[in-house]
């Protein structure tokens, strides 16, 4: 039986009087890729950010390795995020002052891990970025920035990887590079959760949910 890495129990989230999530139960296990689909405005990104400990739910529990992290302090949440969770945001969200290689390594610097340069270079090379290592984000195309953001999400080999619309606005070739990297991470034992509108991507995952009216429906 696969190890449960994230478990959400009865997650509610509202902003003021507006309810976004109305009791979400969800499990992500090691080595599994999971897709969450749904219409725009249903709260997929909010759900992903709660899963990634970036914001707290109004109520409910977030269990990481069986321990409730919802009420952890900020310092503890930072530690979990740095060590356990990789993020691929909707926008590349690179740091303008850092090069492609430095952007890839930024997580390792913040986590206090050194000697990761070789790995980052290999990773960027596998994404076709070997000639752009010293380029700043302003010198990169959107596709190249996305690849750097993907490398940043993968370099720490975290056991949870959260991807928000990873293939949005990408051409087919680049979309395939990103998709195969995410599935490779899943094959290596990472729990990969992908929020997407892309039906073909969702169809390739091990498990699919649909978020509608604040409730997560199991599709397959």
């Amino acid at each position: 039986m696969k190890k449960t890495l994230i478990e959400l129990k009865a997650i509610h989230k509202s902003f003021g009087k507006v309810g976004i999530l109305g009791g979400i139960d969800f499990i992500a296990t090691a080595g599994t890729t999971t897709a969450i689909t749904g219409n725009s405005g249903e709260g997929k990104t909010t759900l992903l950010s709660i899963m990634g400990l970036l914001q707290k739910p109004t109520s409910g529990s977030i269990l990481i390795d069986g321990k409730d992290a919802a009420n952890n302090g900020i310092a503890e949440l930072s530690k979990i995020r740095a060590a356990r969770i990789g993020y691929l945001f909707q926008a590349p969200r690179l740091v303008g002052s850092l090069t492609a290689l430095e952007n890839t390594l930024v997580c390792t610097a913040l986590a206090g891990k050194s000697n990761m340069r070789k790995k980052a270079v290999t990773l960027l090379a596998s994404l076709g970025m070997s000639k752009r290592l010293d380029y700043k984000p302003e010198q990169l195309s959107i596709g190249q920035m996305r690849r750097v953001a993907l490398a940043r999400a993968l370099v720490m080999e975290t056991d949870i990887l959260l991807a928000d619309e990873p293939t949005n606005d990408l051409d087919l070739a680049l979309s395939q590079i990103v998709t195969s990297s995410l599935f490779q991470a899943g094959a290596n034992g990472t729990a990969v959760v992908i929020v997407t509108h892309d039906r073909s991507l969702a169809a390739k995952t091990d498990c699919e949910y649909n978020l509608a009216d604040g409730i997560l429906h199991h599709v397959r």
Partner: peptide
């Protein structure tokens, strides 16, 4: 703000 938000999101502690 956006840059610091990225750092915090990917695991930077406040002390960092």
């Amino acid at each position: 703000r956006s840059e610091y938000g990225i750092y915090l999101a990917i695991g930077a502690s406040r002390s960092k």
